[in-house]
């Protein structure tokens, strides 16, 4: 095959492909994309071609969904993607101020990545933490009731982990 993925991602792909009825492998495309992206960081042409082959669909059928779903991306982001919600519940709890704080303290704009590739930020829509607002999600980890001070701590922890 043209791209090498870890054994864990391969196993995950197999699990996904096994989840749909005969002749319905197209259903596997989106989950395959997102789990692979977790490893590769971005979705490349080679990755889309590989998924098309495995799911037995046309390349374009993979390409067209990549453009539709906001979590799928062709541009790399940081190792830690810090997502700040500014939707209504978070906004009422200081989410907009938190977002501005994130931009200013990290000297980054929306969807930009730090020079060392470690941290990227994004202003996101409601992520299901409205009653514990404002909320931040780092990759897939939720943080609730995030103050600007707490935000700085989270960033320090991420930098510490490297």
């Amino acid at each position: 095959m043209s791209i090498a993925l870890s054994a864990a991602t391969e196993a995950r792909w197999q699990k996904i492909l096994d989840a749909y009825p005969e002749g319905r492998k197209r259903s596997a495309v989106i989950p395959m994309l997102i789990f692979a992206q977790d490893e590769t960081g971005i979705i490349t042409r080679e990755l889309m071609e590989e998924i098309a082959r495995r799911a037995e669909v046309d390349y374009l059928q993979v390409e067209e969904v990549v453009g539709f779903y906001s979590m799928l991306r062709k541009q790399p982001l940081g190792k830690y993607h810090v997502q700040v919600c500014t939707n209504i519940s978070c906004m009422l709890a200081g989410g907009m101020e938190l977002w501005h704080h994130a931009c200013e303290s990290l000297h980054l704009k929306n969807k930009q990545t730090s020079a060392d590739g470690l941290i990227s930020i994004e202003e996101v829509e409601c992520m299901g933490a409205c009653s514990w607002a404002p909320a931040v999600e780092v990759n897939y980890d939720f943080h609730h009731h995030v103050t600007p001070e707490r935000f700085d701590e989270i960033i320090l922890e991420l930098k510490g982990k490297g």
Partner: peptide, 27 residues
Amino acid sequence: LFVHSGAGAYECGEESALLNSLEGKRG
């Protein structure tokens, strides 16, 4: 019973868009 991951789209909460998405299409 299987678990299927979405990939970020509010519209996929609408039932028919969800079904399209579950079939591997745009939502």
